[in-house]
């Protein structure tokens, strides 16, 4: 059995999540997981002023989206995420794409591509 699935891992600005969800809905993806994470890249942290004193927060709130799609969907989905998340400023995030070896739908024991359809 040839498995042709990819896992897409996207680190995005939290405020872009709603829009990305709306855009991705049109690809009829069968699932998507999100995680609220803290992290930093080139943007580094942010400052909050508490009673006149600066307080540093080293990590920023980000959202990590994970979804597994068929090979032929990858470009469309990645393009959509880039299109929706891009502002041109530091902190827009990153996308990583991985090969997926296999998948199992626990309810039915289906394997491979069937498990994500």
């Amino acid at each position: 059995m040839v498995i042709s699935m990819k896992k897409i891992e996207a680190y995005i600005r939290p405020e872009r999540l709603e829009d990305i969800k709306i855009v991705l809905e049109k690809y009829r993806l069968n699932g998507m997981s999100i995680m609220q994470i803290m992290g930093f890249g080139n943007q580094k942290g942010w400052k909050e002023i508490v009673r006149g004193t600066e307080v540093d927060y080293n990590f920023l709130q980000k959202i990590k989206i994970e979804l597994v799609v068929l090979d032929e969907q990858v470009e469309q989905v990645v393009d959509s995420i880039v299109e929706t998340s891009h502002t041109g400023e530091y902190g827009d995030g990153k996308i990583f794409i991985y090969d997926v070896a296999d998948a199992v739908r626990i309810r039915t024991r289906e394997r491979g591509e069937d498990a994500i359809k």
Binding site: P14, E15, R16, L17, E18, D19, Q36, E48, I63, T87
Partner: peptide
Amino acid sequence: KKDEELGLDISEHGEAAYPAFNGM
């Protein structure tokens, strides 16, 4: 539009109610 997505706590006041607490 950007401030609305970011939330008015940050955009208008520079404070977060739950800075170290997860939840969407």
